[in-house]
Write a protein that binds this DNA or RNA. Structure first.
Lengths: 344, 344
DNA sequence: TGATTGACCGTAAGCGGTTACATGGACCTT
DNA sequence: AAGGTCCATGTAACCGCTTACGGTCAATCA
């Protein structure tokens, strides 16, 4: 690898000038600037990132905090891949890279885990990271708050956080659930139940409130027994629907807070001999791959998956260059009507 | 952040000693060593990674090359998440992190893309990365070869590469396909067709050869018209099965080189009024999420998804510390029997 | 014409570690 | 008692880049 010194020697200038060519081009004479650039290109010179980071105290890397929560083994993020694609491409535009921080330590104790946000924050400083992107792994609202308070720029996904240099991006969960319920109301349903995510989970709570709002707006009385808690996993959807079907007056429609639970509900319905959508309309949330292949295909509230990544990247870059705090961003959702609601 | 100098002053030793405590602990007197460690812990000292990388010319980061191939828009890796989990956790054990390299450049031309492996290699050197992990994004065998030849330690996933410090990890694709076919033979099928991936794709070719081997071993003549090419996408599976069903003597069983195509085949069968598994047995490959929710559930050849990541991490770490080349690793596959083959 | 200015560039001091080499003392050998 | 070993530690150079500061020189000004 060519170094700045070599370029300098070949061009008959000092290393300072070479550095200036790349960092404050306007302060160096056009002729020498071009000479340096030409030689740099010839040698395929690339400034050493370690040296640069050491000197400037900041790198071109963003940390990615993504722990698979031990409290939720087997949990998979519903659309990690799309999120990463969006994040990576948006970051690339600024020449930034994504560093997936290790979650456990080695002998040197470099480790960190969600239980120890300090570890992550230390890693951030050690690597001079520009900031952190926090991916919700189920139920980490409290841990995320610690990150937000630490002062390092960070943007959380699907978890509302507040801090001097923190913000978050989330879907319009409430609005999404609301539109799902409205759709069912429009189809004539009034006995509409919902299967929620874990209590305390923010997106889940928002979806629940959207559900309630839609019913309220339509003047349909809310029934407590129509709200049953799941945990986003498929099995909980199955269990929830079984409870709903056992009700003296079972619902004719159900909206689940995740597609996985909706699929679980579908299975429960099939097992119980309940036809979907004839006897029961089902609506999910997320629009994951599976939604379009189950039978019947799942009507669901789609999230803007790559949009999460792009918005997160934008926010973090804005905080890095701007220095302040950014407004939270709420991504629009979109109701995808397929077969399971009876209107496909 | 505390620096080594501060520790040194507080302990009344030199910075060299502090450094030695962390890098060659055996060379420093036990008493002072413990004193340094204690103070380091108190100050929550973490050696600055940039300085360390600059000085030692190697960082604790592994580059991840994962381009979504422009030639295959919409392509999704079938199990990226599991792979990352395995990779990350195995790397963590060594205190290493994963750097997702940016794929496009900014004004400073830091960029790189699969079309320009040199860019990635430069990034690797600039960041003093320990090595690269190359994730197959569909059909990049040629580009990967360039990486392998560049001399930087790298391990490719699902693409056989050869180079001074390169190796790869892949599933036993041939064996997996073979076991699938053997299973079908055992159920009495002899008219067994296959839907392959893109021609030239290595895993696909291996699966095809496994298919052929199984037929050959059983003395069942291979028919050319029973081998139809797809591209791993769902739609190609649909199209392929339509062609197979149009044959004068259509197959009674089909093994697809991916679950997506198997699902596509399921759809085609349903549309054509062909019952699965009664009229047609279907077997997929991968065992992705979808496989267990389609109707009928898909019998498929499961890959060891986190195993990919773990094996890749092991190989790369071995090459970093060892310096040489590692043997390719072939992960075992496992036939998961569900409903679509008629033996569930 | 001497002082002032500004554009351009070099000097050198970091940034925070690692490590080859030198130093010094304790202990052993002859 | 002088010389040799070994262990523990300090000294200082170096990694490659950034940047505050100061110097040079030509152009401008009074």
């Amino acid at each position: 690898m060519a170094t700045g010194r070599e370029i300098a020697q070949l061009c008959g200038v000092s290393v300072a000038t070479v550095s200036r060519v790349f960092n404050q081009p306007e302060t160096v004479n056009e002729e020498t600037r071009e000479r340096v650039l030409r030689v740099a290109k010839e040698l395929d010179y690339r400034p050493n990132e370690s040296a640069r980071a050491l000197s400037t105290k900041q790198s071109t890397m963003i940390g990615l905090v993504w722990d698979t929560d031990h409290r939720r083994p087997g949990w998979r993020h519903p659309y990690l891949q799309d999120l990463l694609i969006g994040l990576k491409s948006a970051l690339s535009a600024h020449g930034y890279h994504l560093l997936m921080l290790a979650t456990s330590g080695d002998a040197r104790e470099v480790g960190a885990s969600l239980a120890d946000p300090v570890g992550y924050v230390n890693l951030t400083r050690r690597h001079h990271l520009g900031g952190l992107v926090l991916i919700d792994s189920g139920s980490d609202a409290d841990a995320f708050e610690a990150f937000a308070q630490s002062g390092v720029p960070c943007v959380a996904l699907d978890v509302a956080v507040d801090g001097p240099r923190a913000t978050y991006v989330t879907s319009d969960n409430s609005g999404g659930a609301r539109s799902a319920v409205q759709h069912l109301l429009g189809l004539g349903h009034t006995r509409i139940a919902t299967i929620t995510g874990p209590v305390g989970n923010q997106p889940s709570e928002a979806r629940l409130s959207g559900y309630r709002a839609a019913l309220h707006e339509a003047g349909v009385p809310a029934r407590d027994e129509y709200v049953v808690a799941g945990d986003f996993y498929r099995a909980s959807g199955t269990a929830a629907l079984q409870r709903l079907l056992a009700l003296p007056e079972p619902p004719t429609a159900v909206v689940a807070a995740s597609d996985e639970m909706a699929v679980g509900a579908l299975l429960a319905a099939r097992a119980a001999g309940v036809r979907v959508p004839e006897d029961l309309a089902v609506v999910g949330f997320d629009d994951i791959e599976i939604a379009s292949v189950v039978e019947p295909a799942l009507t669901t509230v789609a999230q803007d998956k790559p949009g999460f990544g792009v918005a997160a990247a934008k926010a973090i870059m804005a905080m890095i260059t701007g220095g302040g705090r950014e407004e939270p961003v709420v991504l629009p959702t979109r109701l995808v009507v397929r077969g399971s609601c009876g209107a496909g």
